[in-house]
Amino acid sequence: MAILLTHQDRVIVQGITGNQGRFHTRQMLAYGTPVVGGVSPTKGGSNVEGVPVFDSVKEAVENTGATASIVFVPAPFAKDAAFEAMENGVRLIVMIPEHIPVQDSIDIVNRAKTTGSTIIGPNTFGVISPHERSKMGIMPNHIYQPGPVGVVARSGTLSYEIAFSLSQSDLGQTTVVGMGGDPVAGQTFITILEQFRHDPATQCVVMVGEIGGSAEEEAAEYLSVLGKPVVAYLAGRAAPAGKRMGHAGAIIERGKGTLESKEKALKAHGAEVVTMPWQVADAVRSALAR
């Protein structure tokens, strides 16, 4: 079982002929993802890794029955790509690019409310469902294994670190989702937790958060509804106020977005909050044993 992405999803790659698009198409196919097509305007008729390339999403959907798209186009073209996917009925859209203007992200995620599309990202490593042998993203293939833990993270490499330590402790994952490191994103911790709540295979959820915004505080309110144990690790204890820590969204502004406020809210609502990433696996094991 899994959330968001199952093996039923037929995936297209927007920007498939670029370096990143090509490389990750190969990785996704190797993992088992049913990549059925690619889109690259003016490159229609060619193929990448045996996957047919189309000039438009419309054409790709008509020919392949695609239900999901992963976007690799450069940031200035990402809004166009996302709207093209949404207007053509693509259900799940994973936005990989970093540095998409926030105004563009606002337009994308608000439009998605009307079209009913689910936007993951932008600035995300994507989503992977080990049981389903399907992934849409740039995460390494070998660090995941099937199991009962759902993981939702803002950061890519940090989530790899934690997923790998879980796998090494024989604590596999249902689905690992990246919300992305930008201030405005398609998903929040709450929307992902809602999904994990309805997934019977997910017995415990790991939240990997960081400074900036108040997504963790908002999510804390939802934990009693979730009804499953939550282990949280948040990064940025040593971060000074007013400085952007790599991610556009990772900034303590005007006293908001501090780690203390997030940890306090999560603890108050019953989450097990650990201070260091290597403490996550043990906390998950204890939570599952209870």
């Binding site: 950061s155 670190e161 960081e210 990064a235 040593a238 820590m245 990772a250 260091m276």
Partner: peptide, 17 residues
């Protein structure tokens, strides 16, 4: 030096820890 913003933040936290 670390790779990825989250990892870099976590590394600072680990030093402080």
């Amino acid at each position: 030096m670390a790779n990825g913003a989250g990892m870099a933040m976590a590394t600072l936290d680990a030093i402080q820890y």
